[in-house]
Simulated scan of single mutants.
Amino acid sequence: MSVYDTRRTMMVDNQVRPSDVTKFPIIDAMLKIRREAYVPDEKREAAYMGENLELAPGRVMLEPRTFAKMLDALDIGPADMVLDLGCGLGYSAAVLAEMADTVVALEQDEHLASEAEAILAREEVMNAVVLTGPLAEGAAKHGPYDAIIVEGGVGVLPEAIEGQLKEGGRIACLMMEGTLGTVKIGSKQGGRIAWRFAFNASAPVLPGFEATREFAL
């Protein structure tokens, strides 16, 4: 058993389970997927820390607690097609791929996207595909999706993303107001998304998801 295997078990036991995340598919996936493989080499020692891990300027891998609680609230099933927005180096896509039928992972940072594709191939994750493009536009040609997860802060959710969620589908967003954030879970009914509060968290707002300020004279 490697030191990373031990840290992975400790992450689940000390960060995930105490956050009331107990569903077997989530626990199993987070114990299986090698988080250290999906971070920059120089940050491997920090892979299992309980905080957001910077991947690029303004871009993070969400802390294990936040990510696990989002998965728990989304209740992803084995027949689901999931859109993973802002997949970074692919960790989230790999975990989701253990739980869902298919994962479409979108990344607009070309370096992160190419690295994610290479890592997922190396780790033999076969049911996740990485696409490169603007996060705010989503990946309509593969949708609509049973579930969408946004891997970073959201000021305003772009309409294009709302339109890619199936009727009855679920979406998890970390809504940021200044430095304060709340994860909200949306459910699409009658063509509209109804939101509920899930828990507090924080992350940098993703490009294209910034809230526009209205200036008045």
Rank of each mutant, 00 (worst) to 15 (best):
Y4P: 06
T6A: 08
T6V: 08
T6K: 09
T6I: 09
R7L: 14
R7G: 02
T9V: 11
M10S: 12
M11P: 00
V12Q: 03
D13M: 13
R17I: 12
P18R: 12
P18L: 10
S19R: 07
D20S: 14
T22D: 10
F24M: 12
F24Y: 14
P25A: 05
P25K: 04
P25L: 02
I26Q: 02
E36F: 05
P40F: 01
E42D: 15
E42I: 07
K43I: 01
R44G: 03
E45D: 15
Y48K: 01
E51V: 07
N52W: 02
N52C: 03
E54R: 09
G58K: 09
G58I: 13
L62C: 11
P64A: 09
R65H: 02
T66I: 04
L71Q: 03
D72E: 13
D75N: 13
G77Q: 13
G77V: 00
G77H: 11
M81E: 13
V82H: 00
V82P: 01
L85M: 05
Y91L: 03
L96G: 01
E98H: 01
M99A: 02
A100I: 02
A100G: 04
A100K: 01
D101Y: 06
V104C: 10
A105P: 06
L106C: 01
L106I: 05
E107H: 09
Q108I: 03
Q108W: 06
D109M: 03
E110N: 09
A113M: 06
S114H: 08
S114N: 07
E115S: 15
L120I: 13
L120E: 08
L120P: 06
A121S: 14
R122G: 14
R122I: 11
E124A: 13
L131I: 09
T132R: 12
T132I: 12
G133C: 05
P134G: 09
E137S: 10
G138F: 06
H142G: 00
H142L: 14
G143V: 09
V150R: 00
L157M: 08
I161T: 05
I161Y: 05
I161P: 03
Q164R: 05
K166G: 07
G168Q: 14
G168T: 11
G169Q: 04
G169R: 04
R170W: 10
R170S: 09
I171P: 02
L174V: 04
L174C: 07
E177F: 12
E177H: 15
G178S: 11
T179G: 12
G181A: 09
T182K: 15
K184S: 10
I185K: 02
I185M: 09
S187F: 11
K188D: 07
K188Y: 08
K188G: 04
G190M: 13
G191I: 11
I193H: 05
A194D: 12
R196A: 11
F197Y: 15
F199E: 10
A201Y: 01
A203H: 00
P207H: 04
G208M: 08
G208V: 08
E210V: 14
R213D: 15
A216M: 14
L217K: 08
L217G: 12
